[in-house]
Simulated scan of single mutants.
Amino acid sequence: MPIILKSVEFAYGRTVVLKDVNWAVDIGVSGLLGPNGSGKTTLLNLLVGLTRPRSGEIIYGSASPPGRPSNGRARIGYVPQRFSVAGEMTVLDTISYAAWTNGVPAKGCATAASKALATVQLDDHGRRRVRQLSGGQRQRMGIAAALAHEPDIVVLDEPTVGLDPGQRLRVREVIADIGRTKTVVLSTHLIEDIAHLCNHVGVLAQGRMAFDGTENELSELIDNAQHEGVLGSDFERSYYALIERLGAANE
């Protein structure tokens, strides 16, 4: 399901956070990059319907704003950077409850939860207590909670932060698999996540969408010869050079 942002603006009182943001994403994994304070979290809150834009429009498929289709299931699944769950509950019960809160009929919650856990490769952990999970397993459980009601759109905020390399690889595998059939928006500070997962990249800077395209297109914007000797991939150097250029332009 496509998401289209048209001239979206948002402010907290007199503090403008997003200014004339235009962005479109579709099935696949789209990355959202930007320095701290650029407005990424605010944009995610708008996408999942936690807040509304001051002006502009967000279109989901052929409908706006995000709501519930006729079958009663919300079309968006969201995994915030920090989420709280009851450690004594079983993994299956936790996902079943998430399904129920998102409109799945009670009699179908266990089946929905089992399916979601299989998607994130945790189908053999359903009877375990949440407190027994590792960090990577807990993150995949959070993704399962967002998938249990079968949304068309999945929004992930820093899903690999704090994970060790092995855990990060497993979570990336899960996200890549989801992106084959759903629209995934991935906000992260980790350039490697974007490089390995995303076919589309948006860069927010100072409340504006400073770049919208592929990682190759971003690399082509920057003369990497100017950054020889700087450790990092061409994409990583290009991203940071873009941020530096935008910062200098507004000093």
Rank of each mutant, 00 (worst) to 15 (best):
A86T: 10
I175S: 05
A116Y: 00
A148R: 06
G77D: 04
V155L: 12
V48I: 12
G166T: 13
V154R: 01
I175D: 02
M89K: 10
Q139R: 15
I175W: 02
P80W: 00
E173F: 03
D93V: 03
R129M: 13
A148L: 12
V154P: 01
L46Y: 06
A116T: 01
T183C: 15
C109E: 11
A176N: 08
T160W: 05
G126M: 09
D157P: 09
G162H: 08
A112H: 10
D124T: 15
R68T: 13
A176H: 02
R54C: 12
V79Q: 09
Q81A: 12
V174A: 05
Y97L: 15
G162S: 02
A106W: 14
V185A: 06
D123H: 09
G135C: 08
R75E: 13
D93Q: 14
V185I: 15
G103M: 08
D123P: 02
S96V: 04
A110I: 15
G166Y: 13
G61C: 07
Q132D: 12
P66R: 09
P66N: 08
G67Y: 06
A99S: 04
R75A: 14
P80Y: 01
T101R: 14
A112D: 05
K182L: 02
R127K: 14
S134I: 09
V174L: 02
T51E: 10
G77A: 11
L186A: 05
S114E: 08
L92A: 08
T94H: 05
P105A: 13
A74R: 07
P65G: 10
V104S: 01
R128F: 03
I95L: 09
G108N: 15
A110N: 13
A145F: 06
A146F: 05
G162R: 06
T90R: 14
A106N: 06
I143G: 06
L92I: 08
G126L: 14
P165S: 10
R168I: 09
A145H: 00
S70M: 13
A148M: 03
